[in-house]
Structure formats: C-alpha cells, structure tokens
C-alpha cells in the first residue's frame, strides 16, 4: 500500500509549518525527507500518524483517507518511530517492543503466539537480543532509539515512518538500521524517513524529498535533486554529487 499526501498544510503557533506539500511514497521504496532544522520534517511526519491534524489537505493510504480510519487500523498499517523516544518507566526492552502489537488486538484480547513471533523478529532485526531483558532506562541513547525502531517493526506495518532513526546511533548501527530499511523495502514496505546526513541519504534512499520552510523544493533521485544550487540555497553548503558520492566542501 502506498502513502500519499495531497495539499497538506499544517499550522502550529500561528504559522504554517508545513505549507502545501504533495508527496507519495510507493511500496518497495525508501524515501528520504531532508531539509534544514525547522523546515517542518517532524511536523509533516506527525501529521501522517495523526498526532496533529492538518489545517487543510489529506493523507491517504492507498484509497483510504487517514483521518477516516479508526486509530487502531491506522496503527496497524502505518508504524512510526519518534525522534527522541522517552522511556521513563521501568520496562524491559521486550515489554516496550510488545507495545507494537497492541493495535492488532481488541480491548479484552491477550497477546497471541503470532504477536510473540513478531516481537521476537523485531528484537532480532534491531540487534537487541542481548539487551532484551534490560530496563530501558539503563540503555544508552542509541540503544533506546533501536528499541523504538524495533517497536515500530513489531507492528509489521505496510508503511514505516521514522523520524531521524539514526541521529543517536554509532556508525555501525546507522548502516545496520539503514540496511535493514532497504531489506524491508525489498519485501514491499513503503519507508519514509527523515535524515540529516545527506551522504547516508544518497547511499540508502531511492528518492529524496527536500523540505524547506514548509515547502517541498525538490523530489527525485539523489542525482536529480542534489545539485550544487540546491545544496547552497537550502543547506548553505558547497558541494557536489559524483556518482553515488556526495562531497561536501564547506559552508557557502
């Protein structure tokens, strides 16, 4: 199932943080949403899973409008991991990842074997096997981030939305998580993620969408999008893309 955003405008604190965005993410695709701080990336993602309501515009999953779906159904189809996962309670890694299965069951239904399998697979995929019985409050920032990603994976969604899934991760785990997202896309998931590291975006994303001041300024393959003009104008850096290698030379 694909994700489609049409004419989305989101108002926060009296101004349009997202101002007329049209975007589609297809099955089997990894789409990287990039842009400077404050460009509206997180707000756009939060609108997708209905944490905030747009001022106008619509989000569709296939033919279904997101705001007409029951929350549980939306959660089953579209899973998200947030940027700064908080873990204040004394839960184990496994207990947090299990939260991803709640949307599959009714109020009075307990966990089933199938849920256990999904949790197990997510813990493995996120490289958390050794940490599964650890109290999440004792984990490092990067480990917590992987727990959050595992929770989203445990949902077994059709669409995966990740807000800066790599910002706390060491280099090995950055590559691990991005490689995992590629595999999931190969299995038919639609993946939308925000990234700050343009070099990683070039290596791992099929397409890149550039958000600047709430507007999409460019969408396309890295080669189509990341030219010298855009790098200078949106990101304020000098650089150029050669093949699949992005060279950043310095600030403008």
């Amino acid at each position: 199932m694909s994700l489609r955003v049409e004419g989305l405008r989101v108002r926060l604190g009296g101004r349009f943080v997202v101002d007329g965005v049209d975007l589609a993410v297809a099955r089997g695709e990894v789409l990287g949403l990039v842009g400077p701080n404050g460009s509206g990336k997180t707000t756009l993602l939060r609108t997708l899973y209905r944490a905030i309501a747009p001022a106008s515009g619509k989000v569709y999953l296939g033919q279904l409008a997101v705001d007409e779906l029951p929350r549980r159904e939306l959660a089953r189809r579209l899973a998200a991991s947030t940027q700064e996962p908080e873990h204040a309670a004394s839960l184990t890694v496994t207990e947090v990842v299990e939260q991803g299965r709640v949307c599959h069951r009714g109020w009075l239904e307990p966990m089933r074997a199938e849920d256990g399998d999904a949790v197990e697979a997510a813990i493995r995929a996120a490289g958390l096997v050794e940490l599964r019985d650890r109290d999440v409050r004792t984990l490092s920032g990067g480990e917590r981030q992987r727990v959050s990603i595992a929770r989203a994976l445990a949902v077994r969604p059709e669409i995966l939305v990740l807000d800066e899934p790599t910002n706390h991760l060491d280099l090995r785990h950055q590559l691990g998580v991005l490689g995992l997202l590629r595999e999931l896309a190969a299995e038919g998931l639609a993946v939308l993620l925000t990234l700050h590291d343009l070099r990683l975006a070039v290596s791992y994303c099929d397409r890149i969408a550039v958000l600047d001041k709430g507007n999409l300024t460019a969408v396309g393959t890295p080669a189509e999008v990341l030219d010298e003009g855009l790098l200078a104008e949106v990101f304020g850096v000098r650089g150029h893309l050669r093949g699949s290698t992005l060279d950043i030379l310095g600030p403008v």
């Binding site: 939060r46 899973y49 209905r50 944490a51 929350r71 549980r72 939306l74 959660a75 089953r76 579209l78 899973a79 998200a80 991991s81 947030t82 996962p85 908080e86 873990h87 204040a88 309670a89 839960l91 947090v96 939260q99 991803g100 709640v102 949307c103 959050s148 929770r151 989203a152 949902v155 939305v161």
Partner: peptide, 13 residues
C-alpha cells in the same frame, strides 16, 4: 508509559 506521540502512533487516543 510512552510519550503521547508514540502512543498515538501505536493506535490509542
């Protein structure tokens, strides 16, 4: 136990 955004994404209001 999760922050509001995460709880929303996981399917509750």
């Amino acid at each position: 136990h999760a922050e509001d955004d995460a709880a929303t994404a996981l399917g509750v209001n």
